[in-house]
Design a protein around this nucleic acid. Structure first.
Lengths: 235, 235, 235, 235
DNA sequence: GATGAATGAGGCTTCATTCAT
DNA sequence: GATGAATGAAGCCTCATTCAT
């Protein structure tokens, strides 16, 4: 009995943690400091990226809401539950897809914006860069177009509004500079022109298919030609 | 058209409120061919139209999938089940909203197309008419933009593809005629130009709010100016 | 048409909510001010009570975690999903069961505590009242015993700790008064005695079956006899 | 033993983190009679005991159902799957924890019961022994208290009812002998007195923390004093 | 015309368990 | 002895829809 005594003596001090709880879910609350259970970043980043690519395709094709995790899993050749080894939730997949996309997008934009170009060059470079991003991240762009409006209200997708604001500022500044320097027409409603250019470019993601005859640069050139000079014959 | 105009006039102001977003599936069921027991058109057509207006706002705001029948019923001040006195299903509401919208849209377009205008006038008239439709049927347009891609696959929404084809034909013809007649640039990729104009106009439904400073005609004028002459200063 | 107009006029003010969101769940957060979707108090309170009674039995029998909503629904003769017409969640059933129980418990206790009894009478009355509550709310008491420790950490169950504190204070005060007035032994560790009495009484819920030979008052009398005078023969 | 000792020394600091609580089902499966492929007793019995100690703490803290295999593995610094090298199943861990505990408990009890003590001495010795077991096997006792009711229904946990019966018999016999010999009051409902003593003692496991001011012997002395002589002043 | 209550199917998520490496 | 990845079953919950009143 003394023997037993000793061995149990030990466990006594094994800290078990404190009186936390939660009779149920708790996710959807942003990255709570501790108490994580799921990977989030741990498992093989390659598989993760691969799965996100698949998920992005399905989201883009069917819309986020209409996409069931089962459809994603099917597309990935696994069972629905297995996705949860890699991701916290369907929503966190969406989040990561969009965040990754925006990060890369801003890489490109920042390079352009810091290049010291004049307004017209800047506009051309931004449009071209946008079509390149559509080419590279078609699915993410399509998702962004369809879902961002709904998502911005969630804390978790805060970065969407942040990005939108930076985006707007970059474009407005460019357009205003162009007007001031006399390269863009001064009878334009700049905000309207901003929306015009912005939407016109990004909506292209809804019909663009990579490898479909036009390179992104070609499309950009044609769009720029229309946006800058119009479709009517110069008289 | 004036009559139509009045009745839609009303819905314009029905505030819908939130920008919510659910996360639910889509029960894409076969078109359940025959054997209906519920009205379909019987009860008061006014109430019907009223309810469809409400539904359209909610669909537009939240997306079709994310809109629960309950939300529509809430907005209409009734219980979810009660809607089924008026409509066969959630989907049939959607169907009727879009069908009604497209019918009115084509009323306008056909008038324009049969007016014997030259290509540039036709383009101007179509764009103006489009902005008027956005003004009148903002919700339906937004729904159309978001959902039509998914819906075309269903027999029940056959008329969507029909409309799309007529639409494309009308525009392409107009653009081609314009090129042939030397009023539009002949270095255009006509299909690309078609998409450019189409997207440029309809995407406006995503930000346009009736009564927001610009009349549809004003917006049309500005857009036409950009589309036809570009945003850069003529040199 | 004016009629139609009016009727829509009304709905306009039926608040549709604000910029809420949530691509998914959000419950489990205590009664968020607005944005409720589910009844919570609306539907027939009788059915509600009935279902809660059934749920309480199952929770008590199997433990909260081991109880599936399907089991509750089975016991109630309905389908699992149907429970959600009446309740927000499984957890909210638990919450309501315990809250209702504690409310009634404190009704009884407060009556006793405000009756101006001396310490011994108070102790006797509290114990008797406790056995009456066990008789009346056996299931709730059993649930309370098993689950409260886990639950206290959740905001939603805040009232459990509140109750525990009041409970402890009432008992400690009574015991201390008794010691001070010379009716309880002064060689007692009062906190230990408190736990002794408290647990001893409430654990009885684990074996007590109403209508099983002993009335709550009889059991109370016997327990009091043991607690007050011990089981050994007075010498 | 010194080796075992060291190795457990380590885990002591492996923080377990939160005290979370899930809401998951119990897969009460038939006892899966034969056809085992996994060890059962093969690998290092020390590691086994170590892991069982950790598991017991988690079970005790969170409840068996609410404890996921992952939580145990986390506490042990390994992955969930790895536990299956050591144990057949989560349930078999539980089973072994309880079986081990009961074996040791009966070691102690049998020593007392065979010591030829008189009823009062027997009662005192049993109570004291019980508090010692609580001290030594706090986690197992807590698990036993919470889970045994559900488990007795399973063949695999047959030994629980066996133990309960022996336990009841030992106590009833002791009490009856005491009454017969005039050391215990003869106006007691013996079964009620049995439950009283039993509950009174074991419930202490719910609040007792080793090393918390009172030694098990002290607590036993106080409890015995209350149980035997009551808390009221002898008049 | 509407309500209240329910159904049933399906969705997201969890988790014990397995197994190749 | 352990890891990483997956499986499959089950759990909670939602929602379009039905129907008696």
């Amino acid at each position: 009995m003394s023997k037993t005594n000793q061995s149990t003596e030990k466990q006594r001090t094994e800290e078990q943690g404190t009186e936390e709880q939660g009779t149920k879910k708790q996710r959807t609350r942003g990255p709570s400091p501790a108490a994580k259970k799921k990977p989030q970043v741990s498992p093989s980043p390659e598989r993760r990226r691969e799965l996100l690519g698949i998920a992005a395709e399905v989201f883009a094709e069917q819309g986020y809401n209409a996409t069931t995790v089962r459809k994603i899993a099917d597309a990935a050749g696994m069972l629905a539950g297995s996705l949860y080894y890699h991701f916290d939730s369907k929503e966190s997949m969406l989040e990561e897809i969009l965040r990754t996309f925006l990060a890369e997008l801003w890489d490109g934009y920042d390079t352009v914006l810091q290049a010291g170009l004049d307004p017209r060059e800047t506009l051309e470079a931004l449009v071209t860069e946008s079509f390149r991003e559509i080419d590279r991240h078609r699915a993410a762009v399509a998702i962004y177009q369809k879902e961002s409006r709904h998502l911005v209200a969630q804390e978790r997708f805060q970065y969407l509004s942040d990005s939108q604001q930076r985006f707007e500022k970059a474009w407005l500044t460019t357009l205003e500079r162009g007007v001031a320097e006399g390269v863009f027409r001064d009878d334009l409603d700049v905000r309207l022109a901003y929306r015009f250019v912005r939407d016109t470019v990004w909506v292209a993601a809804s019909w663009y298919r990579p490898g479909g005859g036009h390179s992104p640069e070609e499309i950009a050139r044609q769009y720029l030609s229309m946006v800058l000079d119009g479709i009517s014959v110069r008289t």
